[in-house]
């Protein structure tokens, strides 16, 4: 189980994430939502060990992750929001690098990698440099890289970004199957339609604070809304969106 308690990150004294707490149990998919700048990516960076929290605790199976960060990182998979890849590497070379750094033996890694490349439709482009890949193709490579070592916890930051309809359907099915196998998934996004279909529970963040943390159905019921979008809008957007849209039109036509 992943347990986050009172997690806080300050940048120059300003809180980007403020006393956030949640947990993910095996087989659970947690939707981590919030508008731009709410602190989602900062939380994710702390969860993967890239950023050090200012205060608070992240425990994986009861063990503080910072005590043995490498052991924890061996058990997680991560898909970043921005594909920071080495443009001169090919898709296959990138998977090879990730697999090797995860300590997977060549005899296991090579066939696994090739099979995954075939399954996600990148076989023809496997030797092309990543610089020439479309956003969706890069996203597919990152997804496969995050799954190579069969992780226990999968941390996904906007994983559907750039994916075509087919690939999105495959990913949705994959997430369901991973949860059915007892894997934990943290799914950070602001695409609410997908979150609503995929996640068991959601956590909504606003300006670094948790404003809601419950199951989708319970939140809808509680807020008397028919969709997650309505719940989200009520919790995170105090301003009148229609008024803003009208003002934009005024500026454009001026």
């Amino acid at each position: 189980m992943l347990e986050v308690r009172q997690l806080t990150k300050l940048y120059n004294g300003v809180p980007a994430v403020d006393r956030v707490s949640f947990s993910i149990k095996p087989g659970e998919i947690l939707g981590y939502l919030g508008p731009n700048g709410a602190g989602k990516s900062t939380t994710v960076k702390m969860l993967i060990g890239l950023l050090e929290p200012t205060s608070g605790h992240i425990e994986f199976h009861g063990q503080e992750i910072r005590r043995d960060l490498k052991a924890y990182q061996r058990r997680i998979g991560y898909v970043p929001e921005e594909p920071h890849l080495y443009p001169h590497l090919s898709g296959r070379e990138y998977l090879q690098l990730v697999g090797r750094l995860r300590g997977i033996e060549r005899c296991t890694l090579e066939p696994k990698m090739d099979e995954l490349l075939r399954l996600i439709g990148l076989w023809e482009d496997r030797h092309s440099p990543l610089a020439g890949y479309s956003k969706g193709m890069r996203q597919k490579v990152l997804l496969m890289a995050s799954l190579l070592h069969d992780p226990e916890l999968l941390i996904l930051d906007e994983p559907f970004s750039g994916l075509d309809v087919n690939a999105s359907m495959i990913l949705r099915g994959l997430l369901d199957s991973l949860a059915a196998r007892g894997k934990m998934v943290l799914y950070s996004s602001h695409v609410l339609e997908v979150v609503e279909k995929v996640c068991n529970t959601v956590l909504i963040l606003r300006k670094g604070h948790v404003v809601a943390h419950d199951s989708v159905a319970h939140l809808r019921e509680l807020m008397e809304k028919t969709s997650l979008e309505g719940v989200f809008a009520q919790l995170t957007q105090p301003e009148d969106t229609n008024a803003v849209a009208r003002r934009i039109l005024d500026v454009v036509s001026a």
Partner: peptide, 11 residues
């Protein structure tokens, strides 16, 4: 780029 590309890997 190195920091981000190698993030979450056991390194």
């Amino acid at each position: 780029r190195d920091c981000f590309a190698l993030a979450a890997l056991p390194v």
